[in-house]
Write a protein that binds this DNA or RNA. Structure first.
Lengths: 132, 132
DNA sequence: TCTATTTATTTAACTAGCTAAATAAATACT
DNA sequence: AGTATTTATTTAGCTAGTTAAATAAATAGA
């Protein structure tokens, strides 16, 4: 068994666990953060736009949005096309995002700061060179 | 948001999905394969040895072993220390392992074959250079 | 116009990780 | 010896991904 896969899976799991740990202070999980960041960057989006952007399946997003809605982070609005739901950040979310972003930046610096910019580019290049 | 994390998580998810896909022909999931491979390599192991080796929490292994046991891949035996359970591969599993290993080798070649040995080492080195 | 197909979302059920707490056996301490 | 602590496993319940199938609205075609 090629150790690359084991190492890659381990690191991925380890990093999401760490991310969840630092996000605890904001009462968020990493998958919830991914959606909030996506909405912050792109503005209001339909569910389909979100899952295509994050490259996960629709039901994962439906469930996460439902949770974020009950927690007051987002709102679901009917679209002009009655099939689609438009998701927007709540005022409360907009207010809290800067502090969360600070947390994330510190986390990233801690995790990946030991790599030079060239090494980071090298890493991305190698990742992309794997099939898929 | 540093794109390294997104890329890493995506690739990890993509590779496990691919692995699950090729393992379908053997009616196995990737996490089940990880345990079977571990037992093949190390011989009989206690649950604790397995979860420490695979670096996941104990309940994940308890559940996976229960499933593998009902499917006939492994057996749970009482240890001399009555607290521990010793897990062994079934005869059926031993019989089927070579074919599964062929599948896995082909999968690895497909996924990572486009990288030279140096690139693979480079990749591992960069992974390890990240904190953790 | 009516029907068939496509598209957006949701629901159900599965694997797979996690933490926290329960249980039972072994070990350590007085 | 008897109690307290540690260790191994399990159970319960959570996030988070997946596929398959249901529902409802929009679109395309006869």
């Amino acid at each position: 068994m090629n150790p690359i896969f084991h190492a890659l899976f381990q690191k991925s799991r380890y990093l999401t666990n760490c991310l969840n740990e630092v996000l605890k202070q904001h009462h968020l999980y990493s998958s919830q953060w991914a959606i909030l960041y996506c909405l912050h960057k792109n503005g209001s989006m339909t569910l389909t736009q979100i899952w295509k952007y994050l490259n996960v399946e629709a039901p994962s997003i439906t469930r996460a949005i439902t949770r974020l809605e009950t927690l007051g982070w987002v709102e679901r609005l009917d679209g002009e096309d009655k099939r689609e739901k438009i998701v927007t950040l709540s005022a409360q979310a907009e207010e809290r995002l800067p502090a969360i972003m600070d947390t994330i930046l510190a986390f990233e610096e801690e995790m990946v700061g030991s790599l030079t910019t060239e090494e980071q580019q090298q890493f991305m290049m190698l990742l992309e060179k794997m099939k898929g």
